[in-house]
Amino acid sequence: MATRTPAPQARDKLAFLLSFVPYLMDIERVSVADAAAHFGVPAEQIRQSVRLIAVSGVPGETTSYQHEDLFDIDWTAFEEHDEIALTHQVAIDDSPRFSAREAAALIAGLQYLSALPGQNDRAVLDSLLLKLSRGASGVPSEVLVGRAVVDSSLDEIRAALTDGRRIEFVYLNSRGEREVRSVDPLRIESVDEDWYVRGWDHARRGVRTFRLDRLSELRTTDIPITKTPADVALPETLFEGSDEDLAVLIEVEADSVPLIAEYIAPDTQPVPHGSRVRVELRLAHYHGLKRLVASLPGVVQVLEPDEARDAVAEWSRQALERYGEASSVS
């Protein structure tokens, strides 16, 4: 099954057709543009699907796909006004059930979110979980994410974000510097168990990402935010590279590349080297690098530049000193 290539695309198109037909049945008449907006797909995909549906149907009593065995649409409206109206329908009456796996993916996502402010109404959640289970064609698979362990500051940040108020807090960066930051909160983000707030940093005049477990003395001000998410394009990736980033060449087990994927320099690919691979990382400074490498002992080895190797080695040497262990390598 791993070698079949054409299927996923056709399968996705089939899933779309089976969802699109009941939508058209319910709505009776809709413009291509509105349908495209509703499903979040290009208008041309809507038109292609309509053309396919309009010539599809069942073999029927004659087993020869007679006119009454096929879907039909208001062709004039479609061709002249870019509007869709089904005038004849066959075989399908309702929306399809979720597959067991689809239901499981949503259930696990809901469980993860259930600890969030504004998402933690237990009765609402339980009713939704039940609907997903009942609406699935099989028993949803046993996949779950433990409820997120949410930092106590999240409630206040969420409230400030909703009210559009600037926040202030003391932030400890990975260099070990502590300073007061003044930020318009734009989005709360998470990666597994780590939570972040992304916002417009007034002193830096730019968007910055802050780990919630590194901020303290949070305070919501009365000052309205001056930047909204619409003003600044928030990228999908959590960390943005900058031209000042340092390039570091590392060697890593091929299986472990996903562990450092977010630091891999754009447009570069891991290059096999024996049983391991070499790849270039981009990081803002060696303080972040040494923490990353030290937390993956034996997995990641820094090759170049020497300053980066030295920073990592020095970090371990200092640690061993703390344990009263003389470092055997000097």
Binding site: L18, S19, I27, E102, A105, P185, I188
Partner: peptide
Amino acid sequence: MSGESQRAILKLRSLGIESTEPVIGYAPRV
């Protein structure tokens, strides 16, 4: 998990219900 949750959303959209404003301010990721 990504492909399947997107398909589940597609099936939800077939019900023709418009979503309220998306839940703003969250970008969670597992």
